[in-house]
Structure formats: structure tokens, C-alpha cells
């Protein structure tokens, strides 16, 4: 049955309003990064202006460490994404194919741990991380970011693996494959979509994460969000243009990644939704 025209129009308007609500602040930040500093907050606001790169030049000259910390963000994000995806895939496979009380208990524990606010975990971890001399290393951030997403990643990938017929595992085993070989040669290629979906979640989280980076890094592994925070705390006045330029630079990689992977993201979120 065809929907009436007014419903279509209303739906379109609602979607437009939601898109505007979500995208407008981002567009404003990006646009402001190309405005001369004194015109950014001018009232009434100006929408037509001669774009300038002076804010980007200021960022390069006055905050050179921002670009170094972007490199740290990239290392940590890639490391955490790889670790979380691999561990989640293995765990998802086991939870999907094996049944025993210990596994049920560990699944509950994973969800339970996820309920704690990160700050609760952070403070007791600080002396421990310090004693292990992991403070200010990329590794500690990789481990923490991955750990916080393994539970959700495992559930997503379990749903994916559930959809892969067990007959494929059995056929491979008849041909002589072991559990590891089945996982490696059968399950992993077929759950690639789910792995990408999990990867997107971890990537976005790790790229933007502030709290753990703030607690556990000082200089060597310092990530870009910490420098953005420093820019907002300048005691002699925030350079808004430079801050918006940095925000735009920070936004671009994650935006591109999400755009490229968005179809897998939806697949990841809906995996298992129709399973009877």
C-alpha cells in the first residue's frame, strides 16, 4: 500500500531536521576554522566570508605537538582496533559454538564489568600501571581501549558467527581441520563484515578518548584530544580559530573511516536481528 504524500513529506522534513541538528554544529566548526579569528563570533553571524588558512597556519606554528600527538592517536587507535577485533572474533566464535557454565559465567562477567564507569577502574589502576612501568606508553592505551570494547565486540561477532551454518564447521572438520583451522579458514572470512563493524566502534572510541589518555600519559604517548583540551584552557584567551582548525583536522580521519565503513556498521548492528 502506498503511503499518502503528506506522510512522505513529514518523514522527509523530520529526517532533514535530524540531519540539520546533527550536522550543523560540525559544519559550524569546520566553517569557523576557515574564518578570520575576529569574525568567528561576530554578531549577527556572517555566512559569506573570504576563507583563510590563517588558523591552520597558527595551528602548525603554535601547536606543533598537535601533529605529533595525532601520530600517537593513530598508533593507539590502530593497535586498539586490531586487538579488540581479533580478541572479539575469537571470543565470539567460542561463545557461539561452545556451551558450558563457565562460558556463561564469563559472558555475564564481561557485561558486568562493562557497567562500571571508566573512572572507577582508572584510579586504582594508576599505581598498578605505574609499578609496571607502563605509564606513558602506547601499549597501556591499546590494552585499555581494546578491553573496554571486547564485551560489545564479542556480542556483535557472536551474533555474526551464529548466522554461519554449523554445517560449514562440520564439513571442514570432516576434511581434517581443527578448531583453530576452522576459525581461521571458515569463520574469520565469513564474519569480516562484523569485524569491520566492531572495528568502526573501537576506532571512533579510541580516536576520541580522553579520560584514559589523560590519566595514563604525559608526553611520549600523549594523544591529540589532550592537546585540544589544552587549547581550550589557555589562560591568556582561547584561540578559537586555531582550536576549530585542530578540531577539523581531528575530525577528518574518523569521518572518512566511518563513511567508508558505514554499510558494515549497519550490518554489524543488525546482525542476528531476524534470527528466529
Amino acid at each position: 500500500m502506498r503511503r499518502p504524500l503528506y506522510l512522505k513529506v513529514l518523514r522527509g522534513l523530520a529526517l532533514l531536521a535530524i540531519a540539520f541538528w546533527s550536522a550543523f554544529p560540525i559544519a559550524l566548526v569546520v566553517m569557523s576554522s576557515f574564518k578570520p579569528a575576529r569574525d568567528i563570533f561576530v554578531f549577527p553571524p556572517t555566512w559569506a566570508f573570504a576563507p583563510t588558512l590563517q588558523n591552520y597556519a597558527g595551528l602548525w606554528l603554535r601547536w606543533p605537538d598537535f601533529f605529533r600527538t595525532l601520530g600517537n592517536s593513530l598508533i593507539v587507535t590502530l593497535g586498539a582496533t586490531a586487538l579488540a577485533v581479533i580478541v572479539s572474533a575469537m571470543a565470539g566464535y567460542v561463545y557461539s559454538r561452545k556451551r558450558n557454565p563457565y562460558l556463561a559465567g564469563s559472558a555475564f562477567f564481561m557485561i558486568f564489568v562493562r557497567l562500571f564507569p571508566p573512572i572507577v577502574v582508572t584510579l586504582p589502576l594508576f599505581p598498578l600501571v605505574n609499578a609496571l612501568r607502563l605509564n606513558d606508553t602506547h601499549l597501556i592505551l591499546v590494552i585499555l581501549y581494546a578491553t573496554f570494547f571486547v564485551s560489545m565486540g564479542t556480542m556483535i561477532l557472536k551474533a555474526f558467527v551464529d548466522q554461519i551454518p554449523r554445517e560449514l564447521d562440520e564439513a571442514a572438520m570432516v576434511d581434517g581441520a581443527g578448531v583453530w583451522s576452522v576459525f581461521w579458514r571458515v569463520i574469520l572470512p565469513l564474519s569480516a563484515q562484523g569485524m569491520i563493524a566492531v572495528g568502526v566502534f573501537v576506532f571512533v572510541y579510541a580516536w576520541n578518548e580522553f579520560l584514559f589518555a589523560f590519566i595514563f600519559t604525559t608526553s611520549t604517548a600523549k594523544t591529540a584530544p589532550l592537546v585540544l583540551s589544552e587549547m581550550t584552557g589557555a589562560v591568556d584567551g582561547v584561540e578559537w580559530g586555531v582550536l576549530f582548525a585542530a578540531t577539523t583536522v581531528q575530525l577528518v580521519p574518523v569521518l572518512l573511516f566511518v563513511l567508508l565503513a558505514q554499510k558494515y556498521l549497519i550490518a554489524g548492528l543488525t546482525a542476528g536481528a531476524t534470527k528466529g
Binding site: I75, V76, A82, L83, R133, T137, H138, L139, V142
Partner: peptide, 10 residues
């Protein structure tokens, strides 16, 4: 290797 490398403090 990337993860192990990142573990080494500068």
C-alpha cells in the same frame, strides 16, 4: 609487531 613495538617506552 606494531603492538609490541608500541609497548617499548621511548
Amino acid at each position: 609487531a606494531i603492538i609490541a613495538g608500541s609497548a617499548l617506552p621511548a
